[in-house]
Amino acid sequence: MRIFGVVGWKNAGKTGLMERLVTDITGRGFTVSTVKHAHHSFDVDHPGKDSHRHRIAGATEVLLASRHRFALMHEMRGADELPLSELLEKLSPVDLVLVEGYKRDAHPKVEAHRAETGNPLIAPDDPTIRAVASDSTVDVSVPVFDLDDTAAIADFILAQVGL
């Protein structure tokens, strides 16, 4: 499975870049799935709904399905967080998986960077970062793209993964 990541500090533009990349790359006829790492507890379910009641009752997994989509919710119940490699195994085959976060994993990545955040670049100390997408001029040894030049970033990613 071909994977490529988007990393960066908080408010660097990762999610917007991910959204634009998915739109661009699927618009070229490729299939894309995404994985998003959250550093906090989250919930996609709603209190009072049947699926939520099943989880609260103790179900390890609840699969909610309709003719439009399905969602599988898996409660960790104290188990360790799954590594990215195991999560990727749960996805159906696609041309490309874009991963937001997981900056410490070994897959290739582009770093999103906004100067206004004042955060340092990750790229100089991380050989897995193959390019930087920034809203300012940065001095790094990898290709640099304008953060808003989605087509050029998509071209780069597709070339990197062989699509």
Results as ranks from 00 to 15, higher is better:
G8V: 13
A115N: 01
K36G: 04
S51N: 04
W9M: 10
L84N: 09
K90I: 11
T15Y: 11
H40E: 12
H113C: 05
V6R: 00
F156G: 06
K49T: 11
H74F: 14
W9A: 12
V94W: 03
F42W: 07
A65H: 08
G162P: 00
L121C: 03
D95Y: 00
T34S: 11
H46L: 10
A12H: 09
H52V: 03
P47I: 09
H37Y: 14
K103W: 12
K10I: 09
Y102F: 15
T128G: 05
E81S: 07
I25Q: 08
K109P: 01
H40K: 08
H39G: 10
R2V: 15
K10A: 12
D50R: 03
D45R: 01
G78F: 15
F30H: 14
S51M: 05
V161G: 00
G29L: 14
E86T: 02
A106D: 15
L82H: 13
H37I: 09
G16Q: 05
D50G: 02
V22C: 06
G162S: 05
V99S: 00
L88R: 04
L84Q: 03
S41Y: 08
H54W: 13
V94H: 09
Q160S: 07
L82R: 13
R104S: 13
P83K: 10
L63P: 00
G8N: 07
R114A: 04
L63W: 01
A57F: 09
V22W: 02
P127K: 04
T150E: 09
T26Q: 10
Y102I: 00
A38F: 10
A154L: 01
E81T: 03
F70A: 05
R67G: 12
R67M: 07
K10Y: 10
A71M: 12
A38W: 01
S66T: 14
K14C: 08
A59D: 08
V138T: 02
V22F: 03
D135Y: 14
V110D: 02
F156K: 06
E86L: 03
I157V: 13
V99W: 03
P143F: 12
G13R: 00
H68T: 06
H107L: 15
K36D: 01
S85A: 14
V62S: 13
E61M: 01
K36V: 08
E100M: 11
T117N: 03
K36T: 04
A59R: 06
T26H: 03
A106L: 13
H74A: 15
A151F: 06
P143I: 14
H40I: 12
R28V: 15
D43G: 05
R130M: 14
V22L: 11
V140E: 05
L96V: 15
E61V: 02
M76Y: 14
L91M: 01
K14A: 10
S51K: 11
Q160K: 09
H40S: 11
A123N: 11
E61F: 01
P93S: 14
E111K: 00
P127M: 05
